[in-house]
Each structure stands twice: as structure tokens, then as C-alpha cells.
Design a protein around this nucleic acid. Structure first.
Lengths: 236, 236
DNA sequence: CGACGACTTGACGTGTTTCAAACGAGGTGG
DNA sequence: CCACCTCGTTTGAAACACGTCAAGTCGTCG
């Protein structure tokens, strides 16, 4: 798919691929040129959501983009028969809700009490008129989501329960950048629906990893990575 | 994710979402304004690949974009232990190989004898300097890929073998737009690696669908959809 | 302290994988 | 033209991983 990003547009708003989306759309770093209103997120409003509160629903008009200030968010789809597919989790500094289409294709909920920066579509649109090179950033953000989706998809394709849970824990530990201590904001059910497993299998697998001394479980939501290498070996 | 597409850039190169990518990047329709070299693909070169020939490998510099003229292409990743995850199939008129990063994240191979239009990254880059609004098209193309990946991912998440195969057949019949007759260019192994199943399960499932009169199988690669509704019901 | 929700553990059932063999279409050579 | 080979596909039987159903434990909050 042709890497153009660095070529025709100066990376005023550098996007670090595949990792966090913190610095996208001019949030923090690389603000070398001091054009006014370069930081899109500064134009946003803050909003807090209580645990399990809906942020938007699938099918709603996609009129806002969000960035997580604190807390955690899940996006998901409900299948007719009640099965739920959790599409992604978004943690501090990560961006979600950017759609190329008219409406949201997933629902979004706060997993725990969550603070967000919200930018309205109109604002983003007006911003784009002034700064058309922002379009490149939108592209890279979507590309990054695509990469994440493809990675996740490879995981669901041909991996067993242990590999899935291990991959998940490794990914979480990398995203929270808190070393070997991982505080999970989401429930076992969330994890299960994310990994395409049942809650019981997730639980049993966690216990198994603990028995094998790969992790410790001081509490259900607190995981300590004890032996990272073999855990990463289970990953891709 | 904020629908901006139709707002700040005129859809010189309309992209039909989620379906085929034929008309993207100015190939055919909507060329209302007759700027020179508006059709990017006209600037490409043709290239043919024999069955099972590599088009590019994972990790190669992402220096070309491709459009399928005839034939079919698969993109995939190989896991260390030899397992293969087929990421996508590309049929006539569809575009692949567009990366926002520096290198290809999948390998691509011709499934059957395949003719492609190839556009070099340099050409696309130069094109973008003249026509920066093309960037919006790149974005929409990536967004469309994302949508496809997410759809596929929901499929792998929580669906059984029958549902997966049914979804696959429905999707193929829609993409080939040849009514109820679907000619499958890919092998059972390709399908299995795409759906996250084994070749035996795919085969058994096909037989099962035939026994239930939902499809006919004049030959292994030729599927006739006999009863579309119940098949679609198995889909999402 | 008691109750509720989240998580864990156990026993059992089942769908998919695994291993193995047979089948069938297409191609080659006698 | 038929025997033979090959490769992809189908079919069968058994093993296994994960799901299901059910009970129990843990932690939190009133």
C-alpha cells in the first residue's frame, strides 16, 4: 500500500504507527511550526462518562471524535442472537470514533469512569479547510486502526486460548507502559468477547498461566508478568 | 470517526464503500472535470503473474499499488510454526498493496494466472503533489479496507464453521456479481486459512450445505447458490 | 454481617481438529 | 484409448480443546 506519508506532507502531526495515538492530530509533540489552533484537541470539550455509560451507539451519526484522557473505553457490536463482539479497547491517550462513513459502525461504552476530549465533526471539518494536510493524518490514523484490526484478526484466526490470552496480556502491558504490572480495567466478559472465547475459558487460561509461573494474579484485575519471554513466545 | 469525505473534497474519484474498489483513484466513473492524468491507473504498467507466483513478500518495501485486471490474489502472513493466515482475497477490479507504512505487512500471491495494473509509489506521490485531494481517496480506500477487516474479524470472533463458510460464499457471490453461480479461484486450503478452519472442516461444511440443498457443487470450485435466504441468515 | 456481582473451579457435552485413507479429475506416457 | 500418476478434495474415526451448565469462592459495598 505505498508509503507516502513522509513524503508529500510534513509531519506536523507525526503519527507513531501501531502504538499509541496520543500524538496524532497535533496533540502534543512536533509542534514545531506555531500556526494557531494547530492542536485540534485543544479545541475539544471535556466530558466524563460513568462506568458502563454509552458514549455512542452503532448507527448513530458519526459526528464526534474522541481521545481518552483517563479511564478506558470498549467498542463492540451486538449480533442478533445476543452475542457480543468487542472490537477494541481504548486506553489513555488513544483516539477512537474516527469514521470515514456517515455513522458509527460500533457502539462505544466507558468501561470505568472515563474522561474524554471530544471534537465535533464540524470543528474537524473547518480545521481541514484551513489545514488540508491534516487529511494525511486522518489517513494514518485510519491506517493504524487497520493495522490493529488486522493484527487482532490474525490472532482470532488460528490461535488457541492460551495464545490469545497471552497475546492480550502482552499487548496490554505494552500499552499501559507500566512495566510488568498490568491493571485491567475490563471484566473477564469483556476480554472473552474481545478474544472470541468464553468467560470460563479466559478464567481457566489465566489460572493456567499463573500455575506455569508466567504471570501472577494478586487479584482478578491485577496481572503481573513474571516471565515475559515465554509469554511473548505464545504471541505472534 | 467523523464523516468528512463528502465535505471538504469533491468526490472526483468516488469510492464506493465496502464493495469493490474499481472506481477508486480515478479509474472510471465521475471524471466530470477533465484535468489531465486524472486516472491514476492509466499511468500504471501491466504485469501478469502465473499461478502461485509471489507479487510481493511481507516486509518488502511498499513501493507499488496494484489493481486486479483479471485473476485473483491472496494476501497472507506466515506464523513461525508454519500456520498461514490468509488476510484477504482480491478479485477483478479490486485494489491492494496500499500501505501507510514503509513496508508490506502481508505477502501477496497470484491464486491463478493474474493480470495486474501496477502503479509505482513515486508516480502516486508525484500525483499527490499535483492533486492533493487524492489524499482523501487514499483515506477512504484504507477506511474501506478497515471496514472489510472488521467485518471479517467479527466473523472469526464468534461464529461456527457453517456460519463462516456461508458468509464466505455469500460474500463471494456478491463480489463476483455473476448471480448465483460462484466460481472459486482459490483452493479449499486458501479458504480454510482465510476462515480460520481446517481444510477438512471446510470440505465437510460444503458437503453439509449441499445436503441441506442450500448450495450445489457441480465441482469443487464451482458453487451454485440454490437457496440464498437461509444462507444469508447464517451470515451476519 | 449479609448480599450481590464478578470470578473461579468442576464435570460433562460437542464441534472442530487430527490422523488416515479413499476418491476423482486432469495430465502424461505407453 | 486406456493405464497410471498426481494433486486437490472428500470421507471416516478418534482425540481434544473449548463450550456449556452448575456450583462454589472471593471481594466489595451497603
Amino acid at each position: 500500500m505505498v508509503a507516502l506519508a513522509t513524503v508529500e506532507m510534513r509531519p506536523a502531526l507525526a503519527y507513531r504507527h501501531g502504538t499509541d495515538a496520543t500524538r496524532s492530530l497535533g496533540s502534543a509533540a512536533n509542534d514545531t511550526d506555531a500556526a494557531p489552533a494547530r492542536d485540534l484537541w485543544a479545541m475539544g470539550t471535556r466530558q466524563t462518562f460513568a462506568r458502563n455509560r454509552e458514549i455512542y451507539a452503532e448507527g448513530n451519526s458519526a459526528d464526534r471524535v474522541f481521545k481518552v484522557v483517563s479511564g478506558a473505553v470498549r467498542t463492540f457490536q451486538l449480533l442478533e442472537d445476543g452475542r457480543r463482539q468487542v472490537n477494541a479497547f481504548y486506553l489513555q491517550g488513544e483516539i477512537f470514533g474516527l469514521e470515514a462513513s456517515e455513522s458509527y459502525r460500533f457502539s462505544a461504552e466507558a468501561i470505568v469512569a472515563t474522561q474524554l476530549v471530544v471534537v465535533k465533526r464540524d470543528v474537524l471539518r473547518r480545521h481541514l479547510l484551513i489545514q488540508p494536510e491534516l487529511m494525511g493524518d486522518l489517513w494514518r490514523m485510519t491506517a493504524s486502526e487497520l493495522e490493529r484490526a488486522q493484527r487482532h484478526f490474525a490472532l482470532l484466526g488460528r490461535k488457541n486460548a492460551v495464545e490469545r490470552v497471552a497475546s492480550f496480556l502482552i499487548a496490554m502491558s505494552e500499552r499501559t507502559h507500566a512495566g510488568d504490572d498490568v491493571e485491567l480495567p475490563m471484566s473477564r466478559q469483556d476480554i472473552a468477547d474481545f478474544l472470541g472465547l468464553t468467560i470460563e475459558t479466559v478464567s481457566r487460561t489465566m489460572t493456567l498461566l499463573e500455575e506455569q509461573r508466567l504471570i501472577e494474579l494478586p487479584s482478578a484485575r491485577h496481572v503481573v508478568i513474571r516471565n515475559r519471554r515465554p509469554l511473548e513466545a505464545l504471541d505472534g
